[in-house]
Write a protein that binds this DNA or RNA. Sequence first.
DNA 1: GTAATAGTGTCTTTCAGACAGTATGAC
DNA 2: GTCATACTGTCTGAAAGACACTATTAC
Lengths: 298, 298
Amino acid sequence: MSAEIALGLDPVIVSVVDTVPLVLTVIDGERPRLPAGSFDPGRDRTLELAARRSIDEQVGVEVGYLEQLYTFGDRFRDPRETTGGPRFLTVGYLGLIGGPVLGAPANVAWIDWYRFFPWEDWRRGRPPMLDQSVVDRVRAWIAADGADDTRRIRGAAAFGLDGAPWNDEAVLERYEILYEIGAVDEAPVHHDVLGEPMALDHRRILATAIGRVRAKIKYRPVVFELLPESFTLWQLQRTVEALAGTRLHKSNFRRFVEDGGLVVGTGQRRATSGRPAETFRFRSEVMAERPHPGIGLR
Amino acid sequence: MSAEIALGLDPVIVSVVDTVPLVLTVIDGERPRLPAGSFDPGRDRTLELAARRSIDEQVGVEVGYLEQLYTFGDRFRDPRETTGGPRFLTVGYLGLIGGPVLGAPANVAWIDWYRFFPWEDWRRGRPPMLDQSVVDRVRAWIAADGADDTRRIRGAAAFGLDGAPWNDEAVLERYEILYEIGAVDEAPVHHDVLGEPMALDHRRILATAIGRVRAKIKYRPVVFELLPESFTLWQLQRTVEALAGTRLHKSNFRRFVEDGGLVVGTGQRRATSGRPAETFRFRSEVMAERPHPGIGLR
DNA sequence: GTAATAGTGTCTTTCAGACAGTATGAC
DNA sequence: GTCATACTGTCTGAAAGACACTATTAC
């Protein structure tokens, strides 16, 4: 068993175009992967700076918002460990950038994250692939011989069974249960899988990122990192809906966001295919006024 | 510059006794330190298991709840790097254990975390050391020549300036500003420091942990990890107050916790110095009923 | 006029926050 | 009875959630 450590940096770079949440991937093998880099201890002063540089070098993109997600270190998360390689640890990051990104290398692709997590998109009602057969498999897993009693609560909370509400933030919890029941391609034994796979454990890292974004928009004004300086309220709502995977009530959303002091009108108007919309900008002063200025509404 | 990496594990183990939040420290140098261990890639299947084993081996304690906090990797966070040592990265963990812990080695000490963060305890009103002189230093830092405009918002949100409310979760943000203004011993240049220092960057890690606990109790029933199987509501309230560093309204707290289905009475009573109190236990079913079952109340 | 998108008014229910009160024990 | 702690009732205002409505453009 090797005593070496190799440290990687796995950034999940997110952008939203119209109603589609996109994740930046590299296509250079069978499965899409995150634009991972490796940490060179001699070069960067902090892990975050290393992540920024790695992203810039690989895909020519400078991210604005970047936060650390989690450090993944399970043995054999990288198959090179089985053939005498070092232990591959990686620090996951979440990066947000606004607008479409140009000038990226040819093997870089922005992919709708719901291709990897189709069961997470409830904007047009319950996703069709999340059908009775999947629910039955989760229930079988709950009731399995020798299973811990906590499975009942984990399963109900993750998939909204037995009257529990759907929790949009429980992305990782759902992915992990689907992994355990063999409903994703990455599981060692699997059948009738859901969604498209990614390389290594990158879909798990993406699940962590989606869960984090969905939680974070509710108590920190991070959505604005994904929008241009000025935007319409409809644009803002569409962006939040894309991330959260749910629909919001228009008038409640407007009230929340305007009365809450999160945005302020610019006085400008923008032509649409109907009545022109007023444009707004983020009001950064809310950060000091309220402890948790975010968007959390049904 | 070395190209080596060394990975440590720095657990913040928390317990609450009566009204005192305690953190487990090791006293073997000038300053108390966290019971840090190093990660041996050949031994443990996951980072969390490695952290558990490290804690058990060092201080003979088996933690129940354990979650990853953050990975710290700033250059020179460990001074051994300056003399040709490897780059010392560390993964911080938060562990919670209930009840007093016996049988620990002699150099292990449970210390009231407010000795390191006296300005975080608002249970008896505004902490006296957080006086005008400190506020003046923060304001000077905000107004400094060439300072970024974001300092105004950071400072106001962290220290409740200009009408902003005190945010109990902003523990790390406050520590970082105090570091920048030289009001903590760990800062390279400092005077009139607040609180007791810890070794290396351990106080920063502890700040991260306190902020995380304070945030987490509001949306996850983690307090119960710190309490025995059955407890009185007064005990529960005292524990929450100890962690949050604020006082809560008794009747509102009771209503929240009982009507919210977080606890259920056992029917048993317990003698006190006044009327006997009913005992309660945690109702784990809430986890499936509500998306965010926690305790968040003034 | 219609279609399409933008934006407003208001009712109801829920719940946080604050008040003041009563209950049951030891002595 | 007093003292100490445990526990309850209820008022108020804010805000979430749901509903229906009006406004301004293109055609």
